[in-house]
């Protein structure tokens, strides 16, 4: 693993953006079940609320509440295309550190499994600040990141472990395909079998920063926000944040 000062934009271009662009359709086929905290956040918003889904992936959260308007964005063109099918919502291609939105405007924002792909602490905090910056006074953002503390998971990461990790995404070749039942519970970050032309497995490595307990709340405060509520849900830390406004 490279030192923190070697990471940054170029590093993420190779170890995050390029990977998602290549695995987009396979990734999307495994992303269909919304996380409960996210569902609850979106479905309890008042009708007519307007907001952003920053790092929307395949847009699996866009159909949950048709009485609100969500403008979704992703760094991957292939994922944004998939996400754009959910009417009446919209999807564009944008970078979470250079959002093309008017400031202090939106009622809500969600950033689900996105900030942990930024490879330095200053870039992660910049991303949180960018999310807070588009919210109107009293607006709320739900930020959701992978936890370091997931002893119960197959990956076995736990407190005190390395926080900057590479996580493989395996696209199975046709010869290795075994029919496998999809799990009924919330999906894990695990590739399911999918044939690839040419045969053989292909493994893509994605960079993640695993958040330790309390770290997300720290980032929110440093970025100029206040934590309204926060918690842990199935291997992830989440926080609902609101911008702190000078009175």
């Amino acid at each position: 693993m490279a030192d923190s000062d070697l990471r940054g934009e170029a590093y993420e271009a190779e170890h995050v953006h390029a990977v998602y662009e290549q695995i987009a359709s396979h990734f999307s086929s495994t992303r269909y079940k919304p996380w409960p905290i996210v569902s609850q956040f979106l479905t309890t918003l008042p009708p007519g609320s307007i907001g952003l889904d920053i790092g929307c992936g395949n847009g699996k959260y866009l159909p949950l509440n048709p009485s609100i308007y969500i403008l979704a964005s992703d760094r991957s063109t292939n994922l944004a295309k998939i996400a754009s099918s959910h009417q009446p919502q919209s999807a564009i291609v944008a970078d979470s550190l250079a959002l093309p939105h008017p400031l202090k405007t939106f009622d809500f924002a969600i950033s689900i499994a996105v900030v942990h792909h930024l490879s330095t602490v200053s870039r992660r905090r910049e991303a949180v600040a960018a999310i807070l910056g588009v919210l109107r006074k009293g607006g709320r953002a739900l930020i959701y990141v992978w936890a370091l503390e997931q002893k119960g998971s197959r990956r076995g990461w736990e407190e005190g472990g390395e926080q900057d990790v590479m996580v493989p995404w395996v696209v199975k070749g046709p010869k290795q395909v075994k029919p496998r039942k999809r799990k009924a519970k919330t999906e894990t970050d695990e590739a399911v079998s999918m044939p690839v032309e040419g045969g053989g497995d292909r493994t893509f490595q994605r960079y993640y920063h695993l958040y330790r307990k309390g770290e997300l709340e720290e980032d929110v405060v440093v970025a100029g926000g206040a934590v309204v509520e926060s918690g842990y849900e199935k291997d992830n830390w989440w926080a609902i944040a609101t911008p702190r406004w000078e009175t």
Partner: peptide, 19 residues
């Protein structure tokens, strides 16, 4: 892209966003 979408978009450059 819908015309509604354009209502919520501006330039992505920091220097422009506030203008």
């Amino acid at each position: 892209m819908k015309l509604l979408t354009l209502n919520f978009l501006t330039c992505a450059r920091k220097a422009c966003k506030a203008t």
